[in-house]
Amino acid sequence: MAGRGRGRGGGNSFKDINERIGLPAGGPAAGEAPVESVLEPPPLFPPLESRPVPLDLGVEGEYLLALKRDFVEYFHDSPSYLQDIVVKADIQRYSDRYQTATLASRTTADLVCDWTHFPKELKDIGSKPRRKRKLKSSKGNAKVPRKAEDIINRLEELEKQEEGSDAEGEVETDGKKVDNNDEIKDADSEAGEEVDEEDLDEEMDDGTDYRNSHFDNGEDYIDEEEDNLDDGPVY
């Protein structure tokens, strides 16, 4: 059978069907539209033939809407709402970031109620860099280039102390190929990453001196910000 030509039984085009049931070609419009003197392309949004039925949910509906708003707001404010927080160089944003940090006082890690219900790989939120460094230090490899901020280093030291021996144990017993590959991949990806993000993650951990000291200043900052909003940024 030749590939060319229209075979019978291939989907009938509407044109065929139109002709057979006796409608003018081109569907209803062609037969109806009066020929106007000015020919122009049909409007993109032709006038509506009928209006939508009015909405009516009643009191129940209002309550449901309020509930929905509450839920969405809650999720927005909770640690389950992830977003890239872009850090700008001016002072105002810097404090703004900390303000956000104080508002979202729980981390994603806190969200999880029981880690035994999750795959292990998800548990290590924010800890990969520490693990990696541990691994590298134990192997004696070169360090990954990092921003030389004293604060971060101090944090790391504090956290290492907190971690205790557990992490070490994991590194050694789980030192199989797959995990190594994961970690090397992580190293590559994180090297090229916005380090600022990680700074933020780490700084969101509880109980660091740095954060606590800022918390005290929080309220003052809020007021100052209010004024700034009205007058425009102060340079």
């Binding site: 993109l44 509506l48 939508p52 039925v53 009015p54």
Partner: peptide
């Protein structure tokens, strides 16, 4: 009447 026809999409020709 169901939800769709209470929005413009329900009666939208395009």
């Amino acid at each position: 009447p169901p939800g769709i026809v209470r929005t413009p999409c329900g009666v939208c020709p395009i």
